[in-house]
């Protein structure tokens, strides 16, 4: 099929206006899956109607906000707040408990296993010694396994906690009204890249999360720049040990009209290497 002709046939316009027939829609859905040009043309047309809706916005009566919220509550469509998301933690805790129980019974049993009442004490003692040594070895092994399990459980707890903290940090940023979020989009040759800058308008603190950027190659590091009256000012390098999606704290920025990221040698530079520009976004 000639894709150019298909795109210019007017089908995409019919589709986004909601007037294409069912058959046309199913053909289009099939083609867009396999053809990025069609997919992109649809996205562009949709974006245009989004822009139109934005510009043609009409102020909603103030009272409606509460009215709708009340209706959602009445219809039980609202999540219970304060549901603590502690699932991983409780699981790990209960594992810890059982491990502790095992350990304590392991210490008690050898004591019980040494009765002194025997007329042939020498044989009994030797047998008991062998038994006790065997039991000790067995329980020692078991305890070792238990501690390994405990260590593994602790590790898991730590990584879950770190993950939760990352999400929590980002969530706090998103919810903080003083934070301005600036979306940094990939430049022409790297359209897929995307990063977010969270800029606290009160404390001037800047946080960066690399939403969709490849890991920096060895010896390189991403560096954030604030454009201040046309001059790039470094806002620090993105920590090498940080996970890309983590919102990492960068240097404070008092004033800026735009942000950009370049890929620099480890440690960063005083001035950006413009050929290594990855993403940028203005405020």
């Amino acid at each position: 099929m000639d894709i150019e002709a298909y795109i210019s046939s007017g089908i995409i316009e019919s589709y986004v206006l909601g007037v294409a027939s069912e058959e046309e829609v199913s053909i289009l859905n099939c083609i867009r899956k396999n053809n990025s040009a069609v997919d992109q043309a649809i996205a562009e047309a949709e974006k245009m109607l989004e822009d139109l809706a934005e510009i043609q916005a009409v102020g909603m009566p103030m009272a409606l906000k509460e009215k709708i919220w009340n209706r959602l509550q009445d219809e039980n469509l609202v999540a219970n707040d304060n549901q603590p998301e502690l699932l991983p933690t409780t699981q790990t805790l209960s594992k810890d408990d059982s491990i502790q129980q095992q350990t304590s019974s392991a210490e008690e049993e050898p004591k019980q296993a040494v009765p002194i009442r025997s007329y042939n004490w020498a044989i009994a003692a030797s047998i008991l010694f062998v038994l006790s040594a065997g039991a000790n070895l067995f329980f020692y092994q078991q305890q070792k396994e238990s501690s390994e399990m405990l260590a593994a459980a602790n590790n898991e707890l730590h990584s879950k906690k770190a993950m939760l903290a990352t999400l929590q940090d980002k969530w706090d940023l998103v919810e903080n009204p003083a934070i301005k979020t600036i979306s940094l989009k990939g430049i022409e040759t790297k359209p897929d890249l995307h990063a977010l800058v969270y800029w606290d308008q009160q404390s001037k603190a800047v946080f960066l999360s690399l939403e969709h950027m490849p890991a920096a190659p060895k010896g390189k590091q991403y560096q954030l720049w604030a454009m201040v009256d046309g001059q790039p000012v470094s806002a620090g390098v993105f920590p090498l040990d940080a996970k890309t999606q983590m919102a990492s704290k960068m240097l404070d920025v008092a004033k800026a009209q735009a942000f950009a990221i370049t890929l620099e040698d480890e440690g960063g530079k005083d001035a950006p290497t413009l050929t290594e520009l990855c993403v940028m976004g203005s405020i």
């Binding site: 809706a53 916005a57 009409v58 609202v78 999540a79």
Partner: peptide, 22 residues
């Protein structure tokens, strides 16, 4: 997907006027 009041507020504050315009 959190379905809490913050989510609703965000949705309403950012999209209500555009949708109402339509």
């Amino acid at each position: 997907k959190k379905k809490n009041q913050q989510a609703f507020s965000y949705l309403y504050d950012n999209y209500a006027d555009s949708l109402y315009g339509v």
